[in-house]
Design a protein around this nucleic acid. Structure first.
Lengths: 336, 336
DNA sequence: CACACCATGAAAGATATTTTCCGTGCGGAG
DNA sequence: CTCCGCACGGAAAATATCTTTCATGGTGTG
């Protein structure tokens, strides 16, 4: 039965990657073309299968090695040839022989493949984050879940955003004499964010989070001006009121809300819908609504910047320039 | 500071190499204890992101190496130190230094990570939208690109966040007598966001964007208090100064910055790194840094909320309750 | 213009991997 | 029952690869 496994064809034809690094001759720099098809490294994920196939033709020691490798790619990838040999109770030579048998030029390459496989495996079981954040989640999970949720929110928002409405709002903003933005609570920050950005490209914009002042200012608006209300619930009276005033004064009004049927839309020429993600005890709605609102606001900004590129670009550059001075040139340059 | 924004492809991660030194020793046969140390894994993922983050603090030669590595993980994984050194026109020493800077114990481990990344990339999805936002992009494209970029930013941030540092910061926050948060410009909004949230769960927190007031208040801090500085560049003097004062007063200090080697970290007990995404004319850096900072801040918040669940949960519920009244049950009605 | 500093690569020094080579033990033939 | 051949497996040499050290040259500063 036992055919003479012998020294397998291993070293036979395979040019074996010629690790020696090309003669290089000239000091070819940059390039980065680096092809290196890796001739002897075929097995991507099929490693386990290959192990099963080849197991019969292996000696006992080699089987142990192969088993270990197939059983815990990640763990084995972290081991040196000596480590793996000890782990399996064999010698380095055996490990190398096994690697050869599995189709790699040597252990080094097997190890590389193992690392790849491990990475693949791990990334494969990613969609486990769907659960809510629990009180006893380890911090790493919290990070993963939050990031995932916010990504989801972004995707939802982008998908649900009405580009026609957005375009209309952008057009109004780009030509507005002045722009007022209303937002309260968490939305106040979004309002300020938008305002900051618009100011940077030379537009006249104000954010109001004080309801009285907001209304007072709204009275000043007229046709050609723009008023934007930001409210997730769409029913925050303090924000609706100034928008109503602006609306009645003839300004172009925009509502950024998560409820396209909320009261605020009553006074809005254009409605931009933000997404409403699920919330939980530990993850207040404010978190995802904020993310969503910011994306909308960013879209507004970029849209306006495009339309006013002639003036926006230099303005942006100038404000960037101006800031440079504020950054301590060499700060505490103690360490690099 | 010349902002050499290295252009590196976005992609995502790979786990990375446990710090060798396997126990072995014992006669443990085929068992192969699977570890796959997910929790304690030192090197996170998103290599490209890390390269971007660290690029500014790299020397020219190291940047060349980093670029090559980020640009063609698969190709580089097939190379030995010598090979990569020749390819990039540098020396082995430089390659190893770069690997170290990227967070790996040595080149060997970087290479392993590279292999993993390559495998993942290949099996993974398509490249997706890599182009920048252009002046004449239709609005729909703007939305898609912005959303994609921000998602990318989130992924990078999550991958690059040091959970140990995060945990430490959370612990400090949870037990702090009071917390001060410093942020200026766009970061001021993030500071306010964090403050708002902390207040909601009953902690005492203040955001300062006025440099003078910030310092004045920082003087009041002492051991047991927490001071957080938020600055993308890490070298905004107006934010560093109050943190320094707080640091010297014995408060626990935290820096949220995109440059882990920036001056601000000098006075920070814990450094939380945000990601640095590509920026362009139409997409100022502030946009992605804000997204990144907000994620970090959210993580801090949720972490703290977990730790103080007993008091946080009711507080959150209460504040939610209180807000309900403000949402016009019947629309308009200004506050009376 | 001199000084200090730091990036950089060459080469020495460690490690890891591969190869060589030999001992061991098992079967079958004499 | 003993001897021979053979495949297996491991120790150690040989080699490749990685890491560290050190000298050099360039750069910016006082």
């Amino acid at each position: 039965m036992t055919q003479n496994v012998k020294e397998i064809f291993a070293s036979s034809g395979t040019p074996a990657a010629a690790p020696g690094a090309a003669p290089a001759g000239s000091s070819a720099p940059a390039g980065v073309t680096a092809v290196a098809g890796v001739p002897g490294a075929p097995a991507p994920a099929a490693l386990a299968a290959k192990v099963r196939t080849l197991a019969p033709s292996m000696t006992r020691s080699m089987q142990r090695v192969a088993e270990a490798v197939a059983g815990d790619p990640a763990g084995c990838a972290a081991l040196t040839v000596t480590g793996l040999a000890e782990l399996t109770g064999t010698s380095e030579a055996t490990v190398v022989r096994t690697a050869r048998l599995l189709g790699y030029p040597g252990y080094r390459d097997l190890r590389l493949a193992l690392a790849g496989l491990a990475a693949q495996q791990q990334s494969g079981r990613a969609p486990a984050i769907t659960t809510d954040i629990a009180v006893d989640d380890p911090i790493a999970d919290v990070v993963a879940k939050l990031a995932y949720d916010e990504q989801q929110t972004l995707a939802d928002t982008a998908a649900g955003l009405d580009t026609v409405q957005l375009g209309a709002a952008v057009a109004a903003l780009a030509t507005a004499r002045r722009t007022d933005v209303y937002g309260i609570g968490a939305s106040a920050l979004v309002a300020q964010d938008l305002t900051q950005k618009l100011l940077r490209i030379g537009l006249i914009a104000h954010a109001h989070s004080d309801p009285h002042l907001a209304v007072t200012n709204a009275v000043q608006l007229r046709a050609g001006d723009v008023a934007i209300a930001i409210t997730h619930s769409g029913s925050t009276g303090d924000v609706i009121e100034p928008l109503r005033v602006a609306f009645e004064r003839g300004a172009t009004t925009v509502a950024v809300t998560g409820r396209p049927d909320a009261p605020v839309t009553q006074y809005a020429d254009h409605v931009l819908t933000t997404s409403t993600a699920r919330e939980s005890e530990l993850r207040p709605a404010a978190m995802s609504s904020r993310t969503s609102q910011l994306l909308v606001v960013d879209c507004l900004f970029v849209g306006v910047a495009q339309r006013t590129y002639e003036t926006a670009a230099p303005a942006l550059a100038a404000s960037y320039e101006a800031l440079a001075h504020r950054h301590s040139p060499r700060g505490g340059g103690t360490r690099r």
